[in-house]
Every structure is written in structure tokens, then in C-alpha cells.
Design a protein around this nucleic acid. Structure first.
Lengths: 237, 237
DNA sequence: AGGACTTATTGTAATAAATACAAAATCTAT
DNA sequence: ATAGATTTTGTATTTATTACAATAAGTCCT
């Protein structure tokens, strides 16, 4: 399309596009990392597995929309999502020009009970390493979101959303091991945690284990936020 | 809006939105970091400074659009841009629902000659620390893009787009110092560069300086890409 | 009660990276 | 030739990373 053509398109013709949000909800249960998929009960891609996503209302903010769509399809409420990337290939959606903004979150799988609603026929957790063929470009979106999640985890205590309120350092280590598919040395891992002052050691011990019980820890958000502020101020290369 | 309402909205009503791209083009000249702004010659926000941006054609991919828009408004060609973030507040655009996808790049200011075209009345470089009031939510977008740029620079040789083909290590250091607004130790900086094998030392020396001339270096992209591959394979926490 | 078992927790020695300086080298200009 | 400026290398100190060993503290079983 040349520059001339720009002026030959009536302004209203631009307002014939739509956008959607797609939610990449990762679930963690201490054992594996899964992603929440729905089975589409409507065309296009009827009966395909897909990320929960739908068109954004004309007067709806994007992040609000992500949560509303997630609620409508999976009955999950108030998941704090963060934006990942926008996908806009011209032919990615068969019904017309639809770009989609991907959002992601990581949640504690076992304490949630997603169930299908609206045009979703099913909701199901799938291990991130074993995902079926997906509708649209949702495989690309999922891959992108997983990368994003790993990067986030290097900078932020994502595990705070996902571990029990009181947890052991081993549980914390396992979170990283499962996310990064990599083992870490136990002693060295603990050494690193020593100067994370937002890890508050409790006097309480682990119960009902057939070996030496571990000390329990809590995440101290106050301390974390203060420390983060300092880091941001001193940020260096 | 409740779930019921979803089905009362005709599908066509969703296709009444538009999206735009906005380009945050940073310019570097060895002395300061600037951003390219245009003066808008059309409503809304006529006569305001703004990021170069415009509506995306109905059948145009987003990254293609970013370059086309940039060309139309500033006459710059073939700037490789990367996506930053999508901004979608309901009322961010007075003419209707328009979300915008922000793209960014960093270019060598002195070798480019942007000049206004289409509805742009002026193009001008502004130091990133001293930007006028901008149209729409462009100040937020600019801030976001600058953060993004700094993060990119920690992981990639952005300076390769910006330094002369043959450059000194001091020029390289100054790039980081200006971007991060922070001085580095000369000796230690050079030490770090020693195991960057993509920095190819030439036998040639700097000319026309009234002091000991520095050795010149070139960026060896081949070596860089190989090394990057290895890193990606071994990636660790 | 006592030993086997399992995991938690601390420690240590070796290596590598980051930091703060200082010294030496090499060009120009006078 | 010498002063001035900046490049370039070096060194000693501190701080982080790594690999591994030793000890501690519970449970389970006999």
C-alpha cells in the first residue's frame, strides 16, 4: 500500500478492527508447571484447545478485560495479570483483523477450581512440556509467555503467589528447579537466601515428615518493597 | 458490563476499534541520547509534540506498519524496531477506541536526516531528559520505552547500531555511561571487554587526537551470534 | 533406648569476578 | 626534550560462586 492510498481510505474504515486478550495462566502445585487451557465450544477452531481469550469490549480497559474474559470462560476471579506481548499478524484470526494482547500470571493450582462457562466446553491444566495443538497462534503466544515468566522470576519473587504462606527453603528451591528445569546445590542455594531479608524465618517447624523437619519461612512483603526501592535507586549495569 | 450483555452486542460492534503504532526512536551521537518527536499538523492534539505514530492499515502487519508510519512522517527508512508494550486505556484517544502498540529503536543521529512529511509539521530531536509536553499518553510511552531500552542494552550490543564502524573502547564505554547516566572505571571496563570476543581489535589507530591514540575495534557479528547461541543453550538462573 | 535413615543446615577450601587504585606506555604539541 | 593527555596494563583486596564434606535433628524401626 503506498502513501497515496492512505488518504483514499475513509477514516471509518480504520475502525473495523477488533482486539482480544489471551490469558496464559500458569499453575504450580509444587510438582509441575501447568498451563490452563479451554476447549473452544464455538467457531472458529471449535473443539480445539486454546488459551482463554476473547474480544475486548469497546469500553473496557485491557487489563480489566483480561480478568473479565478469564472469569467468563473459566470462573476464576481476581488473578493479577501482567502484559506480555501483542500479536498482530494480519491473518492470525479467520474472522477479520484481530490483534491480541497476551497477559500472563502464575497461580497456585491446588487452591483454584476453574470450570468452564460461556462458550468454553472444558477447562483443563496441561503440563507446559506437553501441550496439545492449539487454536490460532496460541502456541507461539504460550512459548512467548513462558519465556517472559522465566525472566520475571529472575527479578521478582513470583513464588510468593504460589507457595503456601509458610514454606521451607527446600520448597522455595524446588520452585526454581521446576521453572528452570535445572537442579541447584542445596548449600549454595541457602547461602543466597541468607541476605534476602524478606525471607522471615519463623520459630515454627515443618510437621508430619519422616525426617528432620525444616524451619518454616514467610515472605515479608514490606521488607521486600523497601529493598526493591533501594535497588531501583542504585540500579547499575 | 455483565456477562449477559456480551450476547446482546452484535459481533460487528466489536469491529469498531482501531489500533495505531507509535515509534520511540532514540538517537545517539556520542554525546547525548535524544528522542525523535514530530509536531502534529492535524487534530487531535494539533501543534503538540508527539511520538511519530499513526493508525495501522487493515491489512498491514504491526512491525511493517511501524516502519511505514515512521517513513510517512519522518522520511526515515528501514529502522529495525522492536515491540515494547501496548497501551489501551479506554479514553486515551479522543476520536474513539484506539489502542497503540509502541515500538522502539536506537539509531545514529548524525547519519540520519529526518524531515517532516504527511501531516507532520516538524521533526526534531529532543534530549531524553528534556522533553516537552506530549500529545496523548506519549509521555508514559516514552518513559516505558526508555526503561525497555536500558534493559535491552544489558543483554545485547545495542551500541553496534550507533557507534561508527571502527570505534575505540572509550567510545564504547561512553555509550554505556550516557545511557545509564553513570561513570565506570576505565581499567575495569576494559577488563570486561577482554572476553568479549566479538570485539575485534584492528591494527589501526585513532587519528587526529592530541594525545596517545587509542586502538580501533570492530564489531564481529558472526562471533557474537555464535556466542549468543551457546549462551541461550546453557542459560541459567 | 538405640541405631538406621533421611533430609536440614552449616561450613570450608578452591576458584572466579568485581573493585579500587596505581603505574607505565604512547601519542601530540610546544 | 619535555609537558600534557589519554590509553593500556597491572596488582592487591574484597566479594561472590562453586563443589563438596561434615554435622545436626528429627522419624522409624526393632
Amino acid at each position: 500500500m503506498s502513501q497515496q492510498d492512505l488518504y483514499s481510505i475513509p477514516i471509518d474504515d480504520f475502525f473495523k478492527s477488533a482486539f482480544s486478550v489471551d490469558c496464559v495462566i500458569f499453575g504450580y502445585d509444587g510438582k509441575s508447571l501447568d498451563v490452563l487451557l479451554i476447549k473452544r465450544g464455538t467457531e472458529p477452531f471449535k473443539d480445539f484447545w486454546a488459551l482463554p481469550g476473547d474480544l475486548v469490549y469497546p469500553a473496557e480497559d485491557l487489563d480489566v478485560s483480561a480478568n473479565r474474559v478469564l472469569h467468563d470462560l473459566t470462573s476464576l476471579d481476581d488473578i493479577p495479570v501482567t502484559q506480555v506481548h501483542t500479536f498482530g499478524k494480519v491473518n492470525r484470526h479467520p474472522l477479520g483483523r484481530v490483534i491480541t494482547i497476551a497477559y500472563t500470571a502464575i497461580v497456585e493450582k491446588s487452591h483454584l477450581n476453574p470450570h468452564p462457562a460461556s462458550w468454553a466446553e472444558a477447562t483443563e491444566w496441561h503440563p507446559v512440556g506437553d501441550v496439545p495443538k492449539l487454536a490460532f497462534d496460541h502456541e507461539e503466544i504460550l512459548g512467548n509467555a513462558l519465556l517472559h515468566l522465566k525472566n520475571l522470576a529472575k527479578a521478582e519473587p513470583l513464588w510468593a503467589n504460589v507457595l503456601p504462606k509458610k514454606f521451607t527453603l527446600t520448597q522455595l528451591q524446588e520452585f526454581y528447579e521446576i521453572l528452570f528445569e535445572k537442579k541447584f546445590d542445596k548449600g549454595n542455594f541457602r547461602k543466597k537466601t541468607r541476605d534476602m531479608h524478606f525471607l522471615q524465618k519463623l520459630s515454627e517447624l515443618q510437621k508430619n515428615v519422616n525426617h528432620r523437619p525444616s524451619a518454616l519461612y514467610e515472605f515479608d512483603e514490606q521488607v521486600y518493597l523497601e529493598q526493591k526501592n533501594v535497588q531501583d535507586l542504585l540500579f547499575d549495569l
